[in-house]
Design a protein around this nucleic acid. Sequence first.
DNA 1: GTGATCTGTGTTACCGCTAACATCACTGTC
DNA 2: GACAGTGATGTTAGCGGTAACACAGATCAC
Lengths: 341, 341
Amino acid sequence: MAKGPENAPAAGRQPALSDVAAAAGVSNMTVSRVINGNGSVRAATRRRVLDAVEQLGYRPNSLARGLATGRSRTLGAVALDSVLYGPASTLFGIENAAREAGYGVSVASVSAPEHPLIVEAIERLRSQGVEGVIVIAPHVAAGRALEDVPQDVPLVAVADVDQPSVPVAAVDHRDGARQAAEHLFSLGHDTVWHIAGPHGWLESQAREEGWRAVVSERGAPEPPVLRGDWSPRSGYEAGRELLRHDQVDAVFVANDQMALGLLRALSEAGVSVPHDVRVVGFDDIPEAAYFSPPLTTVRQDFISLGRQVFGQLLHRIEGERTRMRSIVPVELVVRESTGTR
Amino acid sequence: MAKGPENAPAAGRQPALSDVAAAAGVSNMTVSRVINGNGSVRAATRRRVLDAVEQLGYRPNSLARGLATGRSRTLGAVALDSVLYGPASTLFGIENAAREAGYGVSVASVSAPEHPLIVEAIERLRSQGVEGVIVIAPHVAAGRALEDVPQDVPLVAVADVDQPSVPVAAVDHRDGARQAAEHLFSLGHDTVWHIAGPHGWLESQAREEGWRAVVSERGAPEPPVLRGDWSPRSGYEAGRELLRHDQVDAVFVANDQMALGLLRALSEAGVSVPHDVRVVGFDDIPEAAYFSPPLTTVRQDFISLGRQVFGQLLHRIEGERTRMRSIVPVELVVRESTGTR
DNA sequence: GTGATCTGTGTTACCGCTAACATCACTGTC
DNA sequence: GACAGTGATGTTAGCGGTAACACAGATCAC
């Protein structure tokens, strides 16, 4: 009368592999082999197992699998918790690539790209059992933090390609900046001003260097660099500052949001873009095409970036130790803010 | 001469709890008790264990713990892979709240809020062993998808509060829309036009309803609703359409990006904001304060939203079955786009 | 002094899965 | 017809933790 426990599979809880095995009348290993498609199993047996899986609604428990294999098939991403267009897009690009490869993504956000926060975030992810970590915090502090992380975590950064210790993938900010500056020079300006991003950000540096290289190659006088913090407000303030100088007629701004602030400052002062001043941004945020006027800017391919950086992490996880660096190309998108006058 | 395996702790791999136990000369359970702070352990013993932990650099393996306890301390978030400001901010708000409670967050992105994609994303997260899932896909298709998910996954949605089957938390879109419309009426306009979000989005609906309620309460004539897809482009097109009507002098736009497109269309047509037309948006994206002119809009508190929705999920995970709904208040931010003429 | 109660610790079994090895028919070979 | 090789399956022992119970010694009530 009394039923043994083996008669009550999946009593309330999720069915386990052993429930499937019991239902199909095979051993656990056979089920495991069917699920994972390795080892050889007779077609008829496979059928029986799959039927049982179907009927019980079995789903493998990835914690158990991870524990047994030592591979969790999960990666961690450290991201800034701001909704900056670049970093947020990069995160989704990575998730995309990870998904295709059957990996899950755990995120740990940090409120600022500061050393202790980043180290702590990486530790958090580690203790969640991720196989590797991607850090999207393109800041020199982040770069230094990466060196303080135990070497046993496969780690890849979305950062400047000159980052020393870890493999990196990055958009080619320098080239983007060069294209932007070249474009402005090609329109006949004597020189090009620059509103840079904040100190310490690798993207600021790379974009600034790209701009400076072109100015120098052209033998043009190098105007003082103005500096914002990526926000529209700071672009606006830089714009007010620019208005105090004469002969500013071409400005390359390190991101679109600051460019928006600049456009605002210029328009308030009755300065017309592109008639009096030409402006180029960076990022091609969705709004950029609808600024007043629509903004010439540099577009980045985040899907491709995600794929690159994920691919690097995978190599790293598989033990490769070569120091790789991927560079994702950019594209200049010309709009009215650098139009004909 | 030959050393037994017990003499070689942490041989290459991460130290495990048993390595700590061996080093401290206690049993595994004692270490477990010290780590988790439950059960009673003599102060001296605790000290020894903690020293061993420190010395070996031990970190608990959350996969193993999750397997043993049946609780992974991880939640899943389903998010759209676009960088729409609201959804992306909500994701970070959730991560914030989860972190405070010691939870990790796994993300699964979907390219569109469509039924099969969402169900698949939830399944993916489930098989990653999450304890519960938060769906940030405020779309009716998403809502329906939630009903097709097995009831054994604790599930909370960031969606409209009228969502039937699952608990939800949401920003009070309806009230935000009401405030926006009331604000425009209070400036003396006869009626208020509306550029709505796309069909099927709960936020579109709620914002549209809020607007319609005010128009109706005021006994004003109800203009036809224009509809965009959240993008600046669609706002621009709606703007072109509006320009064909006379007597449009107040417009409530369902999000800031479309409002930007509208501003662009108006400015191209030589229509001045706020002199000829007043405009209110929704979201308060960081750019909004720097539009031309700066945009009056409705601000949402995503940190608070994240906290609410995470709290609900936690209740749900703990077995509570009450159908809760949280509403997060909004705030109207008045700027020049509804300024005096 | 005897049993009840507490503290501090250890033992055992198991969470759900897989790696590694073992087993047992078959098959083909000479 | 004995033997090696192969394909299909099972057995065992973990992965790194924790729950549940066991147990020794100290403390306490009466």
